[in-house]
Amino acid sequence: MELILAIFIGLLYASGVYLILRRSIVKVILGVFVLSNATNLIIFLSGGIKRSGAGFIPAGAEKVDPATISDPLPQALILTAIVIGLGIAAYILALKYRYFEITETHDLDQLSKTDQK
């Protein structure tokens, strides 16, 4: 399973990198999203996928055997990362929107100055 997921992450990275190497700004934004998703998966995988119990302590019990639940720490980190990713996505979108509005070009190679036309 690790092998399949690793290959999947590799594919996501390849797509993301290909997208951010484009000249069209929309594709670059998409590339950033893909990369952030792929990176979240890497963190998830690095926590180990051996155990798949949900990270809850059943009612009445004092504690849970760590060996039965999936690692909660990477989950917490990814949760933060997802929400930050949301913020960054919004910010990049806004930035690109303004950029396009001002320069009226969507070709990144033209992005040499930020002056209004």
């Binding site: 690793a6 590799g10 990275y13 390849a14 797509s15 993301g16 990198v17 290909y18 190497l21 792929a38």
Partner: peptide, 14 residues
């Protein structure tokens, strides 16, 4: 370039 990045990432993750 992107395929080799992907390949490297796969190796690194493993």
């Amino acid at each position: 370039i992107s395929l080799s990045v992907g390949f490297f990432i796969t190796i690194v993750v493993l």
